[in-house]
Write a protein that binds this DNA or RNA. Structure first.
Lengths: 142, 142
DNA sequence: TTAATAAAAGAGCTTTTTGTCCTTTAACAA
DNA sequence: TTGTTAAAGGACAAAAAGCTCTTTTATTAA
Protein backbone atom coordinates (compact mmCIF):
# COMPACT_ATOMS: atom_id res chain seq x y z
CA UNK A 1 0.00 0.00 0.00
CA UNK A 2 2.72 2.49 1.02
CA UNK A 3 6.45 2.25 0.34
CA UNK A 4 8.64 1.18 3.25
CA UNK A 5 10.03 4.70 3.33
CA UNK A 6 6.53 6.07 3.70
CA UNK A 7 5.65 3.62 6.47
CA UNK A 8 8.72 4.72 8.42
CA UNK A 9 7.91 8.36 7.73
CA UNK A 10 4.42 8.10 9.14
CA UNK A 11 5.54 6.15 12.20
CA UNK A 12 8.38 8.59 12.85
CA UNK A 13 6.16 11.63 12.47
CA UNK A 14 3.51 10.21 14.78
CA UNK A 15 6.20 9.51 17.36
CA UNK A 16 7.64 13.01 17.11
CA UNK A 17 4.13 14.43 17.34
CA UNK A 18 3.45 12.63 20.56
CA UNK A 19 6.75 13.51 22.23
CA UNK A 20 6.69 17.03 20.89
CA UNK A 21 3.32 17.42 22.52
CA UNK A 22 5.07 17.19 25.88
CA UNK A 23 7.42 19.95 24.75
CA UNK A 24 10.39 17.65 24.17
CA UNK A 25 12.75 17.32 21.22
CA UNK A 26 13.64 13.80 20.16
CA UNK A 27 16.82 12.54 18.57
CA UNK A 28 17.17 10.03 15.76
CA UNK A 29 18.34 7.29 18.10
CA UNK A 30 15.31 7.56 20.31
CA UNK A 31 12.95 7.68 17.33
CA UNK A 32 14.70 4.73 15.76
CA UNK A 33 14.32 2.64 18.91
CA UNK A 34 10.72 3.53 19.49
CA UNK A 35 9.48 2.84 15.99
CA UNK A 36 11.88 -0.04 15.31
CA UNK A 37 13.37 1.39 12.12
CA UNK A 38 16.96 1.70 10.84
CA UNK A 39 18.58 4.76 12.35
CA UNK A 40 20.42 6.23 9.37
CA UNK A 41 17.54 5.55 7.08
CA UNK A 42 14.93 7.45 9.06
CA UNK A 43 17.50 10.20 9.49
CA UNK A 44 17.37 10.65 5.72
CA UNK A 45 13.62 10.56 5.67
CA UNK A 46 13.24 13.15 8.43
CA UNK A 47 15.87 15.33 6.76
CA UNK A 48 13.65 15.32 3.71
CA UNK A 49 10.48 16.13 5.63
CA UNK A 50 12.39 18.77 7.54
CA UNK A 51 13.50 20.50 4.32
CA UNK A 52 9.83 20.59 3.36
CA UNK A 53 9.02 22.28 6.63
CA UNK A 54 6.79 19.45 7.80
CA UNK A 55 8.86 18.91 10.93
CA UNK A 56 11.37 21.14 12.70
CA UNK A 57 14.86 20.22 13.81
CA UNK A 58 17.77 21.69 15.70
CA UNK A 59 21.38 20.58 15.92
CA UNK A 60 23.71 20.26 18.87
CA UNK A 61 23.17 19.22 22.49
CA UNK A 62 19.50 18.95 23.37
CA UNK A 63 18.79 19.15 19.68
CA UNK A 64 16.47 16.85 17.80
CA UNK A 65 13.18 16.84 15.95
CA UNK A 66 10.03 18.58 17.11
CA UNK A 67 6.86 20.25 15.89
CA UNK A 68 5.90 23.86 15.93
CA UNK A 69 2.22 24.27 16.61
CA UNK A 70 1.32 24.64 12.93
CA UNK A 71 3.04 21.43 11.95
CA UNK A 72 0.53 19.35 13.83
CA UNK A 73 -2.03 20.38 11.23
CA UNK A 74 -0.31 18.30 8.58
CA UNK A 75 -2.27 15.18 7.75
CA UNK A 76 -1.18 11.66 6.93
CA UNK A 77 -2.18 12.41 3.34
CA UNK A 78 0.41 15.21 3.29
CA UNK A 79 3.14 12.82 4.36
CA UNK A 80 2.10 10.19 1.84
CA UNK A 81 2.05 12.78 -0.94
CA UNK A 82 5.49 14.08 0.08
CA UNK A 83 7.07 10.61 0.06
CA UNK A 84 5.14 8.44 -2.39
CA UNK A 85 3.42 11.08 -4.50
CA UNK A 86 -0.26 10.90 -5.29
CA UNK A 87 -0.16 7.66 -7.25
CA UNK A 88 -2.09 5.89 -4.54
CA UNK A 89 -4.87 8.46 -4.73
CA UNK A 90 -5.15 8.79 -8.49
CA UNK A 91 -3.09 6.12 -10.26
CA UNK A 92 -4.59 3.26 -12.28
CA UNK A 93 -4.75 -0.04 -10.42
CA UNK A 94 -3.68 -1.93 -13.53
CA UNK A 95 -0.94 0.50 -14.44
CA UNK A 96 -2.46 2.07 -17.56
CA UNK A 97 -0.95 5.44 -18.36
CA UNK A 98 -4.33 6.68 -19.49
CA UNK A 99 -7.21 5.53 -17.34
CA UNK A 100 -10.26 7.66 -16.69
CA UNK A 101 -14.01 7.78 -17.20
CA UNK A 102 -13.78 7.83 -21.00
CA UNK A 103 -10.90 5.35 -21.29
CA UNK A 104 -11.25 3.15 -18.21
CA UNK A 105 -9.40 -0.02 -17.27
CA UNK A 106 -11.60 -2.90 -16.15
CA UNK A 107 -11.15 -1.96 -12.50
CA UNK A 108 -11.45 1.79 -12.87
CA UNK A 109 -14.92 2.24 -11.46
CA UNK A 110 -14.50 -0.41 -8.78
CA UNK A 111 -11.28 1.16 -7.55
CA UNK A 112 -12.41 4.76 -7.73
CA UNK A 113 -14.46 4.38 -4.58
CA UNK A 114 -11.69 2.67 -2.69
CA UNK A 115 -9.12 5.30 -3.64
CA UNK A 116 -11.47 8.06 -2.61
CA UNK A 117 -12.01 6.37 0.73
CA UNK A 118 -8.30 6.06 1.35
CA UNK A 119 -7.79 9.67 0.36
CA UNK A 120 -10.52 11.05 2.56
CA UNK A 121 -9.50 8.95 5.52
CA UNK A 122 -5.86 9.98 5.30
CA UNK A 123 -6.82 13.59 4.78
CA UNK A 124 -8.96 13.51 7.88
CA UNK A 125 -6.13 12.37 10.13
CA UNK A 126 -3.90 15.09 11.57
CA UNK A 127 -0.57 14.13 13.08
CA UNK A 128 -1.60 15.00 16.60
CA UNK A 129 -4.78 12.96 16.93
CA UNK A 130 -3.06 9.80 18.12
CA UNK A 131 -1.02 11.46 20.88
CA UNK A 132 -3.21 10.36 23.77
CA UNK A 133 -3.81 6.84 22.53
CA UNK A 134 -0.08 6.43 21.95
CA UNK A 135 0.71 7.69 25.44
CA UNK A 136 -1.81 5.29 26.95
CA UNK A 137 -0.42 2.48 24.85
CA UNK A 138 -3.72 1.74 23.23
CA UNK A 139 -1.98 1.85 19.85
CA UNK A 140 1.61 1.12 18.86
CA UNK A 141 4.34 2.24 16.47
CA UNK A 142 6.41 -0.94 16.73
CA UNK B 1 -1.39 -1.00 -4.91
CA UNK B 2 -0.21 -4.01 -6.94
CA UNK B 3 3.32 -4.76 -8.15
CA UNK B 4 4.04 -4.07 -11.81
CA UNK B 5 4.29 -7.81 -12.34
CA UNK B 6 0.82 -8.24 -10.91
CA UNK B 7 -0.63 -5.45 -13.03
CA UNK B 8 0.75 -7.13 -16.15
CA UNK B 9 -0.52 -10.50 -14.95
CA UNK B 10 -4.07 -9.28 -14.53
CA UNK B 11 -4.09 -7.47 -17.85
CA UNK B 12 -2.61 -10.48 -19.64
CA UNK B 13 -5.09 -12.89 -18.07
CA UNK B 14 -8.06 -10.68 -18.91
CA UNK B 15 -6.85 -10.49 -22.48
CA UNK B 16 -6.40 -14.25 -22.75
CA UNK B 17 -9.82 -14.72 -21.18
CA UNK B 18 -11.49 -12.58 -23.79
CA UNK B 19 -9.72 -14.15 -26.79
CA UNK B 20 -10.01 -17.62 -25.36
CA UNK B 21 -13.74 -17.06 -25.17
CA UNK B 22 -13.81 -17.04 -28.95
CA UNK B 23 -11.97 -20.38 -28.92
CA UNK B 24 -8.64 -18.93 -29.98
CA UNK B 25 -5.16 -19.39 -28.55
CA UNK B 26 -3.01 -16.27 -28.23
CA UNK B 27 0.74 -15.97 -28.45
CA UNK B 28 3.03 -13.86 -26.31
CA UNK B 29 3.59 -11.33 -29.09
CA UNK B 30 -0.08 -10.67 -29.55
CA UNK B 31 -0.66 -10.41 -25.82
CA UNK B 32 2.30 -8.11 -25.44
CA UNK B 33 1.00 -5.78 -28.14
CA UNK B 34 -2.53 -5.69 -26.87
CA UNK B 35 -1.74 -4.97 -23.26
CA UNK B 36 1.34 -2.84 -23.98
CA UNK B 37 3.76 -4.83 -21.83
CA UNK B 38 7.32 -6.11 -22.39
CA UNK B 39 7.17 -9.37 -24.31
CA UNK B 40 9.77 -11.46 -22.48
CA UNK B 41 8.60 -10.24 -19.14
CA UNK B 42 4.98 -11.28 -19.52
CA UNK B 43 6.23 -14.56 -20.98
CA UNK B 44 7.82 -15.22 -17.58
CA UNK B 45 4.69 -14.19 -15.75
CA UNK B 46 2.42 -16.41 -17.82
CA UNK B 47 4.86 -19.29 -17.48
CA UNK B 48 4.47 -18.93 -13.75
CA UNK B 49 0.68 -18.79 -13.85
CA UNK B 50 0.69 -21.69 -16.28
CA UNK B 51 2.73 -23.85 -13.89
CA UNK B 52 0.09 -23.09 -11.27
CA UNK B 53 -2.58 -24.28 -13.65
CA UNK B 54 -4.30 -20.91 -13.79
CA UNK B 55 -3.90 -20.70 -17.55
CA UNK B 56 -3.20 -23.34 -20.18
CA UNK B 57 -0.56 -23.23 -22.89
CA UNK B 58 0.59 -25.26 -25.86
CA UNK B 59 3.79 -25.07 -27.87
CA UNK B 60 4.38 -25.17 -31.58
CA UNK B 61 2.47 -23.76 -34.53
CA UNK B 62 -0.95 -22.51 -33.55
CA UNK B 63 0.18 -22.78 -29.97
CA UNK B 64 -0.30 -20.11 -27.36
CA UNK B 65 -2.16 -19.42 -24.16
CA UNK B 66 -5.81 -20.23 -23.55
CA UNK B 67 -8.31 -21.14 -20.87
CA UNK B 68 -10.06 -24.37 -20.23
CA UNK B 69 -13.58 -23.78 -19.02
CA UNK B 70 -12.69 -24.20 -15.35
CA UNK B 71 -9.94 -21.58 -15.50
CA UNK B 72 -12.43 -18.84 -16.08
CA UNK B 73 -13.59 -19.36 -12.53
CA UNK B 74 -10.36 -17.98 -11.13
CA UNK B 75 -10.83 -14.53 -9.66
CA UNK B 76 -8.62 -11.45 -9.68
CA UNK B 77 -7.94 -12.20 -6.02
CA UNK B 78 -6.45 -15.55 -7.02
CA UNK B 79 -4.05 -13.84 -9.42
CA UNK B 80 -3.07 -11.23 -6.87
CA UNK B 81 -2.44 -13.90 -4.26
CA UNK B 82 -0.37 -15.95 -6.72
CA UNK B 83 1.84 -13.00 -7.67
CA UNK B 84 1.93 -10.58 -4.75
CA UNK B 85 0.82 -12.84 -1.91
CA UNK B 86 -1.86 -11.78 0.55
CA UNK B 87 0.01 -8.82 2.03
CA UNK B 88 -2.46 -6.44 0.45
CA UNK B 89 -5.36 -8.22 2.11
CA UNK B 90 -3.89 -8.71 5.56
CA UNK B 91 -0.63 -6.77 5.99
CA UNK B 92 -0.23 -3.74 8.28
CA UNK B 93 -0.42 -0.40 6.50
CA UNK B 94 2.43 0.97 8.59
CA UNK B 95 4.57 -2.15 8.24
CA UNK B 96 4.39 -3.45 11.81
CA UNK B 97 5.20 -7.13 12.03
CA UNK B 98 2.59 -7.53 14.72
CA UNK B 99 -0.58 -5.56 14.12
CA UNK B 100 -3.98 -6.84 15.18
CA UNK B 101 -6.92 -6.02 17.42
CA UNK B 102 -4.92 -6.36 20.63
CA UNK B 103 -1.74 -4.70 19.34
CA UNK B 104 -2.95 -2.30 16.65
CA UNK B 105 -1.06 0.32 14.73
CA UNK B 106 -2.74 3.75 14.59
CA UNK B 107 -4.33 2.94 11.25
CA UNK B 108 -5.34 -0.63 11.97
CA UNK B 109 -9.06 -0.09 12.42
CA UNK B 110 -9.32 2.51 9.68
CA UNK B 111 -7.59 0.27 7.19
CA UNK B 112 -9.34 -2.94 8.12
CA UNK B 113 -12.48 -1.85 6.30
CA UNK B 114 -10.63 -0.78 3.21
CA UNK B 115 -8.68 -4.01 2.98
CA UNK B 116 -11.83 -6.04 3.39
CA UNK B 117 -13.45 -4.05 0.59
CA UNK B 118 -10.54 -4.63 -1.75
CA UNK B 119 -10.54 -8.32 -0.88
CA UNK B 120 -14.25 -8.83 -1.41
CA UNK B 121 -14.28 -6.85 -4.65
CA UNK B 122 -11.36 -8.79 -6.13
CA UNK B 123 -12.84 -12.06 -4.97
CA UNK B 124 -16.10 -11.23 -6.68
CA UNK B 125 -14.51 -10.68 -10.09
CA UNK B 126 -14.00 -13.77 -12.24
CA UNK B 127 -11.68 -13.57 -15.21
CA UNK B 128 -14.45 -13.88 -17.76
CA UNK B 129 -16.76 -11.11 -16.64
CA UNK B 130 -15.08 -8.41 -18.70
CA UNK B 131 -15.11 -10.32 -21.99
CA UNK B 132 -18.06 -8.52 -23.53
CA UNK B 133 -17.07 -5.05 -22.38
CA UNK B 134 -13.56 -5.62 -23.70
CA UNK B 135 -14.89 -6.78 -27.04
CA UNK B 136 -17.11 -3.74 -27.30
CA UNK B 137 -14.22 -1.51 -26.31
CA UNK B 138 -16.05 -0.10 -23.33
CA UNK B 139 -13.00 -0.87 -21.23
CA UNK B 140 -9.31 -1.14 -22.11
CA UNK B 141 -6.16 -3.07 -21.27
CA UNK B 142 -3.73 -0.52 -22.64
C1' DT C 1 37.40 29.05 22.59
C1' DT C 2 37.16 24.41 22.89
C1' DA C 3 34.93 19.97 23.31
C1' DA C 4 30.86 17.49 22.84
C1' DT C 5 26.55 16.71 20.71
C1' DA C 6 23.30 15.95 17.09
C1' DA C 7 21.40 16.87 12.57
C1' DA C 8 22.76 17.68 7.43
C1' DA C 9 24.90 16.16 3.54
C1' DG C 10 27.07 13.19 0.40
C1' DA C 11 28.76 8.93 -1.22
C1' DG C 12 28.22 4.20 -1.65
C1' DC C 13 26.46 -0.49 -0.86
C1' DT C 14 22.72 -4.38 -0.98
C1' DT C 15 18.52 -6.33 -2.21
C1' DT C 16 14.48 -6.51 -4.80
C1' DT C 17 12.01 -5.54 -8.80
C1' DT C 18 11.76 -5.09 -13.50
C1' DG C 19 13.23 -6.27 -17.89
C1' DT C 20 16.27 -8.72 -21.69
C1' DC C 21 18.54 -12.41 -24.18
C1' DC C 22 19.73 -16.92 -25.55
C1' DT C 23 19.20 -21.87 -25.58
C1' DT C 24 16.14 -25.85 -25.07
C1' DT C 25 11.95 -28.43 -25.55
C1' DA C 26 7.54 -29.61 -27.51
C1' DA C 27 4.19 -29.59 -31.25
C1' DC C 28 2.97 -29.44 -35.81
C1' DA C 29 3.22 -29.51 -40.94
C1' DA C 30 5.34 -30.31 -45.14
C1' DT D 1 12.26 -36.86 -40.76
C1' DT D 2 13.15 -32.30 -41.11
C1' DG D 3 12.17 -27.52 -40.65
C1' DT D 4 9.37 -24.10 -38.43
C1' DT D 5 6.85 -22.29 -34.75
C1' DA D 6 6.04 -20.98 -30.05
C1' DA D 7 6.40 -21.71 -25.12
C1' DA D 8 9.82 -23.13 -21.20
C1' DG D 9 13.85 -22.36 -18.86
C1' DG D 10 18.07 -20.34 -17.30
C1' DA D 11 21.20 -16.66 -16.96
C1' DC D 12 22.02 -12.05 -16.88
C1' DA D 13 21.43 -6.65 -16.89
C1' DA D 14 19.38 -2.36 -15.46
C1' DA D 15 16.80 0.37 -12.41
C1' DA D 16 14.64 1.33 -8.19
C1' DA D 17 14.15 0.77 -3.32
C1' DG D 18 16.11 0.10 0.91
C1' DC D 19 19.85 0.75 3.90
C1' DT D 20 24.82 2.10 5.77
C1' DC D 21 28.87 4.80 6.55
C1' DT D 22 31.66 8.92 6.84
C1' DT D 23 32.36 13.75 6.84
C1' DT D 24 30.60 18.37 7.56
C1' DT D 25 28.00 21.94 9.85
C1' DA D 26 25.49 24.07 13.53
C1' DT D 27 24.56 24.49 18.46
C1' DT D 28 25.43 24.36 23.16
C1' DA D 29 27.84 24.25 27.41
C1' DA D 30 31.85 24.00 30.08
Amino acid sequence: MFSKTCEYAIRAMLFVAQRSNSGVKVGIKEISKNIDAPEHFIAKILQDLSRRGMVQSSKGPNGGFFFEKASEDYTLADIVRAIDGDKIFFGCALGLTECDEIHPCPLHFEMKGIRDMIKSKLEAVKLGVFNKDLEQKLIFLR
